[in-house]
């Protein structure tokens, strides 16, 4: 009797958890699907001229970022200079999207257009890396990718970071 009672309570607790999870997944299915497919960036803006072919930065996952940087790709930090100073991916250069108009000419002087570039920002749906990627493609860079997990995923994976901490 006691055992039956406990079994029923356990079963009902499982149903409760399943219902809660189902409820949450129904409301947030897009977010979860984006997280699992590595597509956590907002939809790209509509192009002004439909006839111009639109090239988007290609999303890359953490493992690919490591391989690409090992083979010479340049990591570019799209966050503001204060966040960059506090901590950034080791070897990344700062090109804040908020200062892009001032900073881009200098960047163009330093980095050749044939170089592979990976942009990143604060992860979790931060759009700056994607916007920066688009600006770099417009500026003539041919191989631009976006690391959507950004600084948080890199740091949380225990990979090398630089900055004041």
């Amino acid at each position: 009797m006691m055992f039956d009672d406990m079994k029923r309570i356990g079963l009902e607790a499982c149903v409760l958890i399943a219902l809660g999870a189902l409820f949450g997944l129904t409301l947030n299915h897009q977010l979860v699907m984006d997280a699992f497919s590595g597509r956590l960036v907002p939809q790209q803006r509509q192009p002004v001229q439909e006839l111009v072919p639109v090239v988007s930065p290609v999303p890359v996952l953490l493992d690919e970022v490591r391989q690409l940087t090992a083979s010479g790709a340049l990591l570019v930090d799209a966050r503001n200079p204060e966040l960059y100073a506090m901590g950034h991916i080791e070897g990344a250069v700062s090109l804040p999207i908020v200062e892009i108009d001032d900073a881009l000419p200098g960047f163009l002087d330093r980095v050749t257009k044939g170089r592979s570039i990976i942009t990143y920002c604060s992860g979790f749906g931060c759009p700056d890396s994607f916007d920066l990627g688009l600006r770099l493609i417009e500026a003539g860079y041919r191989d631009v990718r976006v690391f959507e997990g950004g600084f948080p995923e890199w740091r949380d994976a225990g990979l090398p970071v630089a900055g004041e901490g």
Binding site: G24, L27, H29, V32
Partner: peptide
């Protein structure tokens, strides 16, 4: 994050 708050 998408499920736990709803169960709570």
């Amino acid at each position: 994050a998408a499920t736990l708050p709803y169960i709570e």
